[in-house]
C-alpha cells in the first residue's frame, strides 16, 4: 500500500500489513498523534487494510504559541 506522510511530505510503500494498528506500529507512529485517512473517511486502529490501499497519516499536533 501507499502511505502518505506529512511534515515533511513523503510516500512510504508497505506490503503485508493487515490492520491500521499494525501499520502504525510498523512505521513507529503513535495512534493518538495522527488521524488515518482513506478516501474521505477515517480509519480506527482495528480496521483492516490491503496492499491496494492509499492511506494518509496526517499529524494533528500544531505548535504555535497560544
Amino acid at each position: 500500500m501507499k502511505v502518505k506522510m506529512r511534515n515533511p511530505d513523503r510516500i512510504e510503500e508497505l506490503d503485508d500489513v493487515r490492520t491500521v494498528g499494525a501499520l502504525l506500529a510498523r512505521l513507529g507512529v503513535h495512534p493518538d498523534s495522527v488521524i488515518v485517512i482513506r478516501g474521505d473517511s477515517l480509519l480506527t486502529k482495528d480496521q483492516r487494510v490491503s496492499d491496494d490501499d492509499e492511506i494518509e497519516l496526517r499529524p494533528v499536533v500544531s505548535g504555535g504559541a497560544s
Binding site: 506529512r6 511534515n7 496526517r58 500544531s62 505548535g63 504555535g64 497560544s66
Partner: peptide
C-alpha cells in the same frame, strides 16, 4: 496541514 515554519522548537510543543 503544514506547520508554521516559525514554530519549530517552540516550547509549547515540549509541554504537549
Amino acid at each position: 496541514v503544514d506547520e508554521c515554519p516559525m514554530a519549530a522548537g517552540n516550547t509549547g510543543l515540549a509541554y504537549k
